[in-house]
Design a protein around this nucleic acid. Structure first.
Lengths: 340, 340
DNA sequence: TTGAAAGCGCTAACAC
DNA sequence: GTGTTAGCGCTTTCAA
């Protein structure tokens, strides 16, 4: 460390006895540098421990940063997505940064805005709440991949699970076990606006459709809660105080765990109520939990999202809407309905 | 959106009929702007929907970004830390970005480097593996708060749980229940280098000390695994194939869940082996899991880390080493040792 | 209180 | 194949 300050491209150029442009070309491996020059530049870079300032690069072009906006980091399904995305970035010059948006509502917009302000080269977003118009506008200035949401738009790409098929797997499973009184535990109205294309909206809609198709339209019952395990616990506790459905289909595993807790707290109920979740997070397979749920290949979704982004950055313009097939994991939390 | 490009500070200055410097002062609320001018500038900003480019600001000063480096996003204890950190940033101009470093080893260095390259104004790091020297060097150019690690350094601040006290709570609890054959399930040697000050190193050391102090030095038994629930499951399965300890003290809850799974898979063992974890993640309180564990107030740690960083940015230079008191949560996974 | 001007570290034309 | 030069959008002296 000669001097007290970090080396700049000029320091490297000076030490290597070449121009600044030459150094720039080497670090970007751009066309038109002789092997000899590349060698000398690389030596100087190593010598000075030079690292290009991202801010300066961003001012002229790319920031070599991909941003991912994430609500509710506590949900382990999302960490699988991140793991997949990070893995896909391994041998690229890109770095992933995550902008958390815990408190849902406008926080999502704030987080996406923060990523845009930082001039990331692409954004992966999981906000179910941000409006499609807003996203389309943002997509005008930076490539976006929307995760989870079924938006049929030309402005950005999407990677989604097939929630229609997934919900049908669940409902078919419960019907086959003889269940008729099936409650759907889902999140707030804001996240399930009909036609909004959010995962929870689709699951809710398909639940209702399946019930009606089975002639059980009058047994449709929807219970809502916040997104946390704790909120789901409270909502289910309230439900069980006044009713005993034969099965509960939770919108995701977090909610299912809360419901399971409430069920276990009422003696004798555990063997009488079937429970199904959605996502197949790791702990769902734990023998003490043993939650029947729908598996969604989160890692693959994250990886695919990154690939789509890199393709966009490389110039693709036609939109891609990728759908992941869901698989039902049957475990002991669901079982035949009790004889009447 | 007049024109097709995003507004710059010049556009605002032109529309407001003032100089670029004036706009800059307004957006930073710097000293020396008349109310009238502030008013006009703010109107122009709103009109143009102007948002300062972070990259440009970073070149001259702050990036208004705090970075947090995080290994193993899958561990829900870490998400609580993030939630606390994000909450503490609510009413500040700072934005949090997370650099994930899933694959441990040099990934941590890479992620920290990436944050530094992006000129974040401060870094919260959870890497147990990065060398103290490396961190001290980095701390020369950007404020750092190290989470979890007991480093007695002047170069950066630390926020840690009191792992000595926490481990003593655990061991005392197990001894009181009559356990003598206590196995410690921990991570790889790399994370438990004696004297390295990592949480797992301290817990291991205290476990051994407690065993020796109780005259059980010859019963010390350490089992190691990877950081995932799955790795812990495998390691415990292997252990149980050849031995049946009366208690297992896992280095954290993730490991404990894996151990619990292995225990449950061997019929009859569940009621004979006590299990204790560390961290008190949400699911540990689930009645089907009911894991005795040490609670660490993750949110408070994240919040404190952010505060320390903001203080450093504001000019503080003396180091602060903050310690969080652990609390033992006794649940049914631990119980009296079986009569001999 | 306000504005002019220099410059942060890099990339990309373009000239040599 | 190599170097010169003109900015990118801000902040910050320093004059006015």
């Amino acid at each position: 460390m000669p001097g007290t300050h970090a080396a700049t491209i000029d320091d490297v150029a000076r030490l290597a006895g070449v121009s600044r442009a030459a150094v720039s070309k080497v670090i970007r491996d751009a066309y038109g540098v002789s092997p000899a020059m590349r060698e000398r530049v690389n030596t100087a870079i190593a010598e000075l421990d030079y690292r290009p300032r991202i801010a300066a690069r961003a001012m002229r072009g790319s920031s070599f940063t991909l941003g991912i906006e994430l609500p509710n980091l506590g949900n382990p399904f999302f960490s699988r997505i991140i793991a997949g995305a990070a893995a896909a970035l391994q041998d690229t010059p890109y770095q992933l940064i995550i902008a958390p948006a815990e408190t849902d509502t406008e926080e999502g917009v704030r987080a996406l805005g923060a990523l845009a302000d930082r001039q990331v080269d692409g954004i992966i977003a999981i906000s179910p709440l941000v409006s499609r118009e807003w996203l389309e506008r943002l997509a005008g200035s930076v490539p976006i991949v929307m995760l989870g949401r079924h938006d049929d738009t030309d402005a950005y790409d999407t990677v989604t699970g097939d929630d229609v098929a997934g919900t049908r797997l669940v409902m078919r499973h419960l019907f086959d076990l003889g269940h008729r009184d099936i409650v759907h535990l889902t999140r707030s109205e804001a996240v399930t606006v009909p036609g909004s294309g959010t995962p929870h909206a689709v699951r809710l809609q398909e639940y209702e459709r399946a019930m009606r198709d089975a002639g059980l339209g009058d047994r449709i019952r929807v219970v809502r809660s916040g997104l946390s395990e704790d909120a789901a616990h409270g909502a289910t506790r309230d439900l069980l105080a006044s009713a005993t459905p034969s099965a509960i289909f939770a919108g995701n595993d977090e909610l299912a765990f809360g419901a399971q807790r409430a069920i276990l707290e009422r003696p004798g109920l555990a063997t009488r109520i079937s429970l199904v979740g959605y996502d197949d997070v790791t702990i769902a397979a734990h023998p003490a939990i043993s939650l029947t749920t729908v598996s969604q290949a989160g890692e693959a979704m994250g990886e695919r999202a990154v690939r789509l982004l890199l393709e966009r950055i490389a110039g693709r313009t036609e939109p891609v809407h990728h759908v992941v097939e869901p698989v039902l994991r049957t475990r002991s939390s669901s079982r035949p309905a009790p004889m009447v």
